[in-house]
Design a protein around this nucleic acid. Structure first.
Length: 989
RNA sequence: GCCUCCGUGGCGAAAUCGGUAAACGCAGCUGGCUUAAACCCAGCCGCUUCGGCUUGCGGGUUCGAGUCCCGCCGGAGGCACCA
């Protein structure tokens, strides 16, 4: 370790003359002392309104505003922390401590997200059961966080693997399984769409109010159990389906879309992912697509995250249109989805995805005169379609991405009839049409869509333009013909009229309309003619919810001998994982697309087979052997902090309403939610979308009273770091690199005498640039660590770590310490004399502005202002108590241990954690005089010291006098006076 | 390809509502203290031909632009055949 490089030991000399200096070892002693005392006294206990946690150490909830500040809880991996990890926790802690001093009842706690792949993989590597390794990791992380001085209510900590927690995760699954979505019923917030108990659906079927899908004309009670369940499965919010899913042989499990990268690989492990038809659990999140998008308006989140969620949901408005397809089996209906029904006149062919059911009706032979390039060389359409489908299936998502743009497809031998024009459109199958978006079929408009245009070019299909560019654009259709589609919404509709429509025989013309009007007119016609209707489509897919892994929550589901799923009664929850020696997943050759998932739990026959009475007497049932994805536990953990020991409820309603309910704080609307949620932006469309979905289901079903989980979201930036490579490209330890500034100002970096390259990026072991919190505690103490991390820059921006700069924070705390305590004797040196006028002004201005910075979550600028005040006090012989005490209080959210110690030495018995935040005395806020600037054409030409409440006329006169020589006696053309700061003059000619 | 955000001293940054660009810190420099050094204390610290010029580059709006608008350049992130 090179000390001059990091400044580590230079900042903390222990000298014989200064035995009471605030250095690293004293900081550590102070920190241990106060952490112990906070623990013993329950300083950070938050009081509930009822139940077992009403005692907040003498502080009660009654009449106090609540403030719930929360971090995205950590996943306790075996790797341990580096200084980049806790940035968000520190930010939340500073905010929590500040709000506590404002007299609010602050709930701040930390749990652990402990199920999931990494824990399981780590366990497999070390040969220990994941519960053992996970619990050890949690203990280590808890130790590191405690040393940071985070102000958690430790009574409320839990892990998602705790059986009492798993119980409620399974309970929520049961409620979702036992619910369906009624789009025609208003939910409690007033908007349309509401989850309802499945029993109410059964009642509608039984009474005949609602026709039974697929069994029209039969009574509900005539259906057998399997038939009933099949119908209900089509409605349940958690349902089983056989559909194309992401199968990852390398991990041995299926994955959600959100867990697959753009390259078509698993986010964890980077293995190839294949599309396979498999029977799996899904959650009907698409039912909530509209509300998930719309309700973003009622929460205080970064625009960026809202936008990412909106894009992910991908709500689009358009129309579905029915085309008739004549086949040997009779006419078939082909429904397509389009956002541009106005372009129906420009449709020259149609395309269905390779999985489309219509392909079972292709003819036995190619129609006469079929172009050879359309057949792919296959003898019959049946062969062609089968071969094409097989080829599409074996493609990885990566292949699909790479081949996007190059359009492939084959003719099906079928023809679709355009319902408006009656045009006979050749029907193709092509993998650029996706089965799980829209209807899996499209009307192709090569004149208005790039993909259709590319396909038309490849297969020699005609192009009709139905929109021409507006005259104002300077373009004409001639600029596009033969080159490109015209995709813009600006323009006028052409080539779009017919005397007698095919479907209804009436005349229809869209010519001359703008695109938006034409869309409306076309949609209206489709609805009147009953061949289509306006509809909404979503990019969002239902959430694949089962995994073939051991380390997750088992499903609270058993199957009877007919394979009908039944919920395990709530009073038999939780269903715990069997304690088995073999928990490793069955993985496969990562490229073996044809392998089949095999859940580890399926090997435990004793556990699988159960005998229970579910109302039909004692019967044998078989457990579901899948487990839930690790998102399940994080979907609702925020609510468990409120009421962590409740055995009767997921969360007691009073607690929910007090901490998260509608209007529980003045600045939080009906949507309710956690007051501040801090975490990384990487969860923008995973955890944050799943949580919102679950929360809305629970809201609809009446278990919670507000419809959003997180009121304010804050994304902290990343701590980045420099890394250094030698001329062979090998990383060298960043700690030992020397920085030199040359004569010409160029900076060079050397390691072991050799010049090295500097790179900028992440902190990581392989980059040899890790700095750990433990290193910081040892060399500076936790308070300096906190102070540095909070002062580096805005919390929501990424910035590079630089250990060399930490010393500035240490010096500030040392100066603060010296302003109270004599380093030689340890005596308190403050005076009770009243501060002078200048000190009072600076003090009160500092209080006012630091309060503002804290409210806005800008600790970096708050710290700058605290340093200014402290530097001012440093210049005084003895520091007035009336000035140093408010300063110590204001420092305390950021550097709490040293602040507590100084507060105690200043003669206070009680912890300052709940002491009231300093109030600025208005008499001393503001300036005696301000510098007014005189500008001529925006350039500063003079500065005047004036009273802050100077009369504008007087200021103008002074300003003109001050720059009279520059104006040369010519009267100014214009003078703008913004008293007391600016006079801006436009000179005359 | 589409969408979003960001470019300010040697470095991390500040300027919160369109109103004195560079607060605060690091590094560096000068002086004091010291036998000496460290620590500490007091200063200096964008460029300049001393007229001025400066917020990635070029335009625009405005009395006035780091901030608003248009077009480039560079960086980060998201989406990616979504009809």
């Amino acid at each position: 370790m090179n000390d001059t490089e990091t400044g580590a030991k230079r900042a903390v000399p222990t000298t014989e003359e200064a035995p009471f200096r605030y250095d690293a070892s004293m900081a550590q002693a102070i920190e241990e002392k106060w952490q112990r005392r906070w623990q013993e006294e329950g300083t950070f206990w938050a009081a509930n309104v009822s139940g077992d946690l009403t005692d907040g150490q003498g502080r009660h909830a009654d009449g106090r505003p609540s403030f719930f500040a929360m971090d995205m809880f950590p996943y306790p991996s075996g790797k341990g922390l580096h200084v980049g990890h806790p940035l968000g926790y520190l930010a939340t802690d500073v905010v929590s401590r500040y709000h506590r001093m404002k007299g609010e009842n602050v709930l701040h706690a930390m749990g652990y997200d402990a199920f999931g792949l990494p824990a399981e993989q780590y366990a497999v590597q070390t040969g220990q059961h994941p519960r053992i390794t996970t619990e050890a990791n949690i203990a280590n992380m808890r130790r590191q966080l405690t040393r940071m001085g985070l102000s958690f209510d430790d009574r409320r900590s839990f892990a998602t693997i705790d059986p009492e927690y798993v119980r409620w995760t399974q309970w929520i699954f049961s409620r979702i399984f036992d619910a369906w979505y009624d789009p025609d019923k208003a939910n409690p917030s007033g908007s349309m769409g509401c989850a309802r108990p499945i029993a109410e659906l059964v009642e509608e079927f039984r009474s005949g109010v609602r026709p039974i899908d697929g069994h029209e004309g039969r009574a509900w009670d005539e259906l057998d159990d399997s038939e009933q369940e099949e119908v209900l499965n089509g409605y349940r919010l958690a349902y089983i389906s056989k559909s194309p899913v992401n199968w990852c042989p390398g991990l041995g499990t299926v994955l959600a879309n959100e867990e697959v990268t753009a390259e078509g690989r698993s986010e964890r492990g980077n293995f190839p992912v294949f599309q396979r038809e498999l029977r799996q659990w899904s959650m009907r999140i698409t039912a909530y697509g509209h509300r998930l998008a719309e309700d973003l308006d009622s929460i205080d989140w970064p625009q960026k995250v809202k936008l990412m969620q909106r894009n992910w949901i991908g709500e689009s408005h358009g129309a579905s249109v029915h085309f008739r397809v004549d086949t040997a089996d009779g006419p078939q209906d082909m429904e397509v989805y389009t956002t541009r029904p106005d372009t129906l006149f420009g449709t020259t062919f149609a395309v269905v995805s390779p999985e489309h059911p219509l392909l079972t009706h292709v003819p036995a032979a190619w129609p006469e005169g079929t172009d050879e390039s359309w057949t792919g060389g296959y003898a019959t359409p049946v062969e062609a379609v089968q071969a094409y489908r097989r080829a599409a299936e074996s493609k990885t998502a990566k292949d699909r991405v790479e081949q996007a743009g190059a359009k492939t497809g084959l003719f099906t031998g079928l023809t679709a009839t355009n319902p408006i024009t009656g045009a006979q459109l050749p029907l193709f199958t092509a993998d650029y049409v996706l089965m799980d978006y829209g209807t899996g079929a499209i009307m192709a408009v090569p004149g208005g869509d790039q993909r259709d245009y590319d396909f038309a070019q490849a297969y020699g299909l005609p192009v009709i333009y139905t929109v021409e560019p507006p005259a104002s654009s300077g373009e004409t259709l001639a600029d596009y013909e033969g080159k490109a589609p015209y995709t813009s919404h600006d323009g006028t509709v052409i080539n779009s009229s017919v005397d007698a429509t095919w479907a209804r025989g009436d005349a229809l013309s869209l010519d001359g309309l703008g695109v938006d009007d034409a869309i409306a007119a076309a949609t209206a016609w489709l609805e009147e003619a009953q061949v289509g209707h306006g509809t909404t489509s979503y990019r969002l897919r239902d959430w694949l919810f089962s995994r073939q892994r051991y380390w997750g929550e088992p499903f609270p589901i058993v199957y009877d001998k007919d394979g009908v799923p039944h919920l395990v009664p709530d009073d038999q929850l939780p269903i715990n994982l069997p304690d088995v020696p073999d928990y490793s997943p069955k993985t496969f050759d990562p490229d073996d697309a044809q392998s089949n998932p095999e859940a580890p739990l399926s090997r435990n026959e004793d556990w699988i087979e159960v005998t229970m009475d579910l109302g039909d007497g004692e019967q044998t049932y078989w457990r579901d052997t899948n487990t839930m994805p690790n998102w399940a536990g994080s979907c609702w953990y925020y609510m468990r902090y409120l009421d962590p020991h409740d055995a009767e409820h997921m969360v007691e309603r009073d607690e929910y309403d007090y901490w998260m309910g509608p209007d529980h704080r003045p600045d939080c609307g009906k949507a309710g939610g956690v007051d501040l949620y801090v975490g990384g932006v990487e969860h923008a469309v995973l955890h944050l979308l799943y949580s919102r979905f679950w929360h809305k289901v629970l809201f609809d079903l009446g278990y919670v009273d507000s419809f959003e989980p997180f009121h304010k979201l804050f994304n902290q930036g990343m701590i980045q770091a420099y890394a250094y490579t030698d001329d062979r490209g090998q990383y060298v330890p960043a700690d030992d690199v020397q920085e030199r500034t040359g004569e010409d100002g160029t900076v060079t970096y050397t390691y072991d005498g050799e010049q090295v390259n500097r790179e900028f990026g992440k902190m990581g072991k392989s980059l040899k640039n890790i700095v750990t919190p433990d290193y910081m505690y040892d060399h500076y103490g936790a308070d300096t660590f906190r102070l540095y991390e909070m002062s580096m820059g805005p919390l929501d921006e990424s910035r590079p770590w630089n250990t060399r700069n930490v010393v500035g924070g240490m010096r500030f705390l040392q100066r603060l310490w010296r302003n109270v305590i004599d380093e030689a004797t340890g005596e308190v040196t403050v005076t009770d004399d009243a501060p002078d006028e200048a000190t009072l002004k600076l003090l009160n201005n500092t209080i006012a502005s630091v309060t503002e910075e804290m409210e806005a979550m800008r600790p970096n600028t708050a710290i700058a202002k605290l340093i200014v005040l402290n530097n001012h006090l440093t210049g005084m012989g003895r520091v007035p108590r009336a000035a140093i005490e408010p300063l110590v209080l204001m420092v305390s959210p950021i550097a709490p241990h040293v602040a507590e110690e100084l507060w105690a030495r200043l003669g206070h018995d009680e912890s300052l954690a709940h002491h009231s935040w300093p109030q600025a005395d208005e008499r001393y806020v503001g300036q005696d005089s301000v510098t007014a600037v005189v500008q001529i054409k925006g350039k500063v030409r003079a500065r005047l010291e004036v009273s802050p409440d100077i009369d504008p006329k007087e200021l103008e006169a002074k300003a003109l006098a001050a720059v009279a020589d520059r104006l040369g006696g010519v009267p100014p053309r214009k003078v703008i006076v913004k008293a007391p700061k600016i006079v801006s003059i436009v000179p005359g000619q």
